[in-house]
Design a protein around this nucleic acid. Structure first.
Length: 556
DNA sequence: AAACTTCACAACCGCGCTCCA
DNA sequence: CTGGAGCGCGGTTGTGAAGTT
């Protein structure tokens, strides 16, 4: 379809038409009325023409640019060029530390509302911020680091909660805290009810919490990025990936166990994801089959779609750290997608409980990355230095999968997960992180002490990759509270609640985080009145149970 | 030094909203 | 009320630079 560029037609340019359908392979607009609209990089001459136009006519009416300036660019392109590069007072260059901090905070509050974020950053464009964020996300996810510093999480939560209380859930100042768009996070509680109803039936499914699903989805943390409607990779596709990655017996995971996998992805993982992380490694394949956690790694990705989509992994697998490829793990899938997948998965799972052997597949999770290498070594060092912390921590530091099962001993404070931003932390030996240790342990069937080199533990060469201390590299100062959100048990573990008082000064914040239902249980827990996992299903139980599952993978 | 990979940025694309006739 | 125009936004893609093998 010809690009209409004549004066009479200019105003009636079909939406966006000037750019896409009109452009031929030469990247130039097709002739519409004999005019070719140019695409691609702008020249200085074009810039000058555009600036001249704006000086004369002001901003806006971009489709008139071509008419008045002789610029063979569509209005949209002109607007973009002006907004991102030519308008005055644009600040160029790297983001300052302050700007970075602000971006992180704003993103925690707003999600992928780049334009709104840009409004808070004078001289910066939405595109700049978006690019910055996306690349930062990639770095962090590759490193398995949380997207947000804990303090930012809490702050965002606090603010969002406050806004909810004052403004209302959906009403009001949308312009500031999109986090309030709770509708985006709402999941019918029926989903969880349904799951809970089957708790006793599902051997590997942890009890489900009494926490309303909508609450679980962190009213707060959610950023629209988690909620973008992104096509869910069909379960089959995931499984196909798994099978491709691990052809052979391990592929048995796909035999009727997809649902479970999906279920886990959609629950445990995403809950964890909801906290802003992506597990650094395939934490424990055994726990979640091939993708219990790992899948998610790509997750968030970005859902900002950034996860450019789930590229199927195939053929020769180059083992790397989690990438955004695994969009299927995106939290958004869980949230934005209709509940159906989850329910269906559960149903399917109920119908076909997983064979125990299926866990073995994960021993060779593709997403066990070389990160393990460095981390394991570091974690060993770290663990030895942390043994002083407490018996509990020491227990966990020598954790075997079974030990980990006793996650009641978890204490993220002690473990200093703490060292947020410390690439070691997420995998710290002393931590009880399921993410960190289970994979190698379960794969090797031995404790950390006897652990084989990460490169060989699954018989697969794992490419080592330096940890990106994204946070610190971002000039973020690790600050209190040193609560790592990359560790699900950090948030969900039972004992942690008791022990974390020193970490979480304002417990109400946390209660807020998980909503009132959590608050109730939490209080019980904190009071020592409820140390069982009852009612904590997805929370503590989920994590606590994992090691048990993990042990299954120890089987030859 | 060449090939390859990764990164960062600019630009494009499609969707949806608002306004107005 | 409806449909088109204009525009903004968020996601995606393309590309060159830098780094690595």
């Amino acid at each position: 379809m010809p690009c209409k560029t004549t004066e009479s037609e200019e105003g009636s340019l079909p939406k966006d038409q000037c750019e896409s359908p009109l452009i031929n392979e030469n990247n130039e607009g097709c002739a519409g009325g004999g005019v070719v609209l140019k695409k691609g990089p702008w020249t200085s001459t074009e810039d000058a023409m555009l600036v001249d136009f704006v000086k004369k006519h002001g901003e806006g009416n971009w489709n008139a640019v071509q008419k008045h300036s002789g610029l063979f660019r569509c209005g949209k392109s002109c607007r973009l060029r002006w907004a991102n590069h030519l308008r005055p007072n644009l600040k160029k260059g790297a983001f300052t530390a302050e700007e970075e901090r602000l971006i992180i905070e704003l993103h925690a509050k707003m999600g992928n509302k780049w334009a709104r974020m840009a409004a808070h950053l004078p001289g910066r464009t939405d595109n700049e911020i978006k690019n910055y964020w996306n690349t930062r996300i990639k770095r962090r996810q590759r490193a398995g680091l949380p997207l947000y510093p804990p303090e930012v999480c809490f702050q965002a939560l606090q603010e969002s909660q406050h806004d909810q209380n004052t403004v209302g859930v959906n009403g009001g100042d949308r312009g500031h805290h999109d986090i309030l768009q709770t509708n985006s996070y709402e999941i019918p509680d029926v989903i969880f009810d349904s799951l809970k109803a089957n708790q006793g039936v599902l051997p590997y499914i942890p009890e489900l919490p009494d926490i309303p699903a909508s609450s679980m989805l962190l009213k707060g943390l959610g950023s629209p990025q988690y909620c973008t409607l992104q096509p869910i990779m069909p379960n089959q596709k995931r499984l196909r990936e798994s099978n491709e990655l691990f052809p052979g017996p391990s592929a048995s995971v796909g035999n009727g166990f997809s649902s479970f996998e999906q279920f886990q992805d959609d629950t445990c993982d995403k809950v964890a994801q909801s906290f802003g992380f992506s597990p650094p490694l395939d934490p424990d394949p055994a726990i979640k089959n091939s993708e219990s956690f790992g899948v998610i790694q790509g997750s968030h990705s970005l859902s900002n779609g950034n996860s450019s989509a789930s590229k199927p992994t195939s053929g020769a697998v180059k083992l790397e750290l989690p990438s955004l490829q695994y969009a299927e793990t995106d939290f958004s899938n869980w949230v934005a997608s209709s509940p159906r997948p989850l329910l269906e998965s559960v149903d399917a799972f109920i119908k076909s409980p997983p064979p125990a052997g299926t866990f073995e597949i994960d021993c060779s999770s593709p997403r066990n990355s070389g990160l393990l290498d460095a981390l394991l070594q570091e974690s060993k060092n770290l663990s030895s230095s942390k043994k002083h912390s407490s018996d509990k921590s020491s227990n966990s530091s020598s954790a075997t999968p079974g030990d980990i099962a006793d996650s009641s001993t978890l204490n993220i404070c002690e473990t200093e997960w703490a060292d947020y931003g410390d690439p070691i932390s997420p995998f710290g030996h002393s931590t009880t992180s399921l993410f960190s240790e289970i994979s190698p342990i379960s794969a090797s069937g031995s404790s950390m002490d006897g652990q084989p080199p990460a490169e060989t533990f699954t018989g697969i060469i794992v490419k080592s990759e330096p940890v990106d201390i994204a946070w610190t590299s971002d000039r973020e100062e690790e600050t209190t509270p040193r609560l790592s959100f990359t560790q699900p048990d950090a948030l969900l573990g039972g004992d942690w609640l008791e022990q974390s008082s020193g970490c979480i000064k304002d417990q109400s914040i946390f209660a807020t985080f998980l909503d009132d239902d959590f608050d109730i249980d939490y209080k019980h827990m904190a009071a020592g009145t409820s140390t069982s996992n009852q009612g904590w299903g997805l929370n503590s139980c989920a994590w606590n149970n994992m090691p048990a599952v993990c042990q299954m993978s120890d089987l030859p």
